[in-house]
Amino acid sequence: MVEVVVVDKLVKYYGGFQALKGVSFSVFEGEVFGLIGPNGAGKTTTLRIIATLLKPSSGRVTVCGYDVVREADRVRRVISYLPEEAGAYRNLSGYEYLMFMAKLYARSKREAEDMVEEAIKISGLGDRVYDRIKTYSRGMVRRLLIARALMVKPKLAILDEPTSGIDVIHALHIRRVVRDYARRHGVTILLSSHNMLEVEYLCDRVAIMYGGRIVEIGSPRELLKRYGVRNLEEVFEKVVREGNGESMGSSFKGVKRFA
């Protein structure tokens, strides 16, 4: 199997605070890989380093064989990144926004138009795509951004909390879109979430992050079997409790319960 992402002993400091404490994992071509964990576990920092936004304090990350620090420009050509709290240009229409993005990736006008056409289908915005983004609901903006991230058929799509802050119906739509698109086009997807249900539904493999470390890694089915539990939330609870015996009160902040 071809490794699209290789993260090796990744460490990141913000001033005196150590956000990542030696994170290592790989993501293989065509798989949907999820980073899960509570707020402050280091998921977003890891994704931002892979997306070339932050520089690691130590350790090494490659995407499709390109080093994220030394070959950041090349990495940016093969990835598409969706930040957790992303916005879009309010004064553009959805169509103009998609076309602007498509032109930066496409080699011809025809290719850009095809990308936008695909994005309109993914987003499900219909004719509303021609309206100004400032008239969109939060869910519509998120769908537009997901479509933008996927339409360019990147080698690696990095989705940070793809369904964050949106309602159940829109979240369901986005999960379906992501899963179908990954299967149809063989796009590798690396996503983060603290929504365990989402991760179980979408991911081929997951890595559980806690306190800046990866504490467990495997397919959801493997993890459930290994820990003898019914869902990933229970896996997470067991992993953390067995791992370091820390109080779960604070560590579970932000982890949604679906029991």
Binding site: R76, R77, G87, R148
Partner: peptide
């Protein structure tokens, strides 16, 4: 408007 992160990861 939280568009900077996306902008900085464009090719």
């Amino acid at each position: 408007e939280k568009t900077l992160e996306t902008l900085l990861t464009l090719p």
